[in-house]
């Protein structure tokens, strides 16, 4: 009948049903299964245990497992929804869902706010912005004098910190990114639209009886 509910479904071993994940995200069942192919590849790159460690995450991003990076660390921590020190498949799908082109703008704004709120105080503070800027400068081997860095932060806070209390709250962040939409560009991965094309082998490992769009 062309309906994946018409027959009994098997589940991924140890993972949530792809149909449930698809029903709670912007992904189709086929896309969840394609993501599982990607997940298996990343989670087996150092230790094949069905979980993504921080080392495996950094290896996937930088192709170098030893490369420490404040931003990759922060993204790993946000993907580690259950705070277990590793990313399981449910975490992976639900976190990547925020980066889907069809995901709600509010979810992207919220994720980006938490990304930059390094110490999770509910505010993006000046010292956090400075810490991230210095990390970026080190990473890119760009050299800027400290007073130039301070000037950039001063200007940013004049624009973003509307009540001028020295920290950016979520409402101020929402207004700031609406005026600077390019800041949310990193929150959308167009690639997620083509995930089944990139990992066609999901068809051979599918646990649903019929693949539906």
């Amino acid at each position: 009948m062309g309906c994946f509910n018409s027959k009994a479904r098997k589940q991924f071993p140890g993972q949530e049903d792809p149909v449930i994940l698809a029903s709670q995200t912007a992904f189709t069942v086929s896309e969840v299964e394609a993501l599982f192919e990607l997940f298996k590849s990343i989670s087996s790159s150092v230790v094949d245990d069905g979980l993504i460690s921080k080392e495996e995450f950094q290896l996937a991003i930088f192709k170098n497992r030893k490369k420490e990076n404040i931003f990759a660390n922060r993204i790993f921590d946000l993907f580690d929804v259950k705070k277990k020190g590793v990313i399981d498949f449910d975490d992976f799908v639900r976190s990547l869902n925020v980066f889907h082109p069809n995901a709600a703008l509010e979810d992207k704004i919220d994720f980006s706010f938490r990304l930059y709120d390094l110490d999770s105080t509910g505010f993006i503070e000046r010292q956090e912005v400075k810490q991230m800027l210095i990390a970026l400068l080190c990473e890119s081997e760009m050299k800027l004098a400290d007073e130039v860095v301070e000037t950039i932060i001063d200007k940013t806070f004049v624009d973003a910190d509307q009540n001028q209390d020295g920290k950016i709250d979520i409402d101020e962040w929402r207004k700031f990114v609406s005026e600077n939409p390019s800041l949310l560009k990193i929150m959308t991965l167009p690639y997620l639209r083509d995930i089944t094309t990139s990992f066609p082998s999901f068809v051979f490992n599918s646990n649903v009886d019929e693949i539906v769009a």
Binding site: L38, S41, I42, A60, I61, F62, K63, N69, I70, F71, A72, N73, I75, L96, F99, L115, Y116, V129, M132, L133, A135, L136, E139, S140, M142, L144, V148, T151, I152, I153, K155, T156, D159, A160, N180, S182, L183, K185, I186, L189, Y191, I195, S198
Partner: peptide, 25 residues
Amino acid sequence: QPTAMNAFELISMSKGLNLENLFDV
């Protein structure tokens, strides 16, 4: 010019924030 950009525009240029690399397996 870095000085013409706001701090978050600069920060968003970090390779650590480029998740597209996750798909390059």
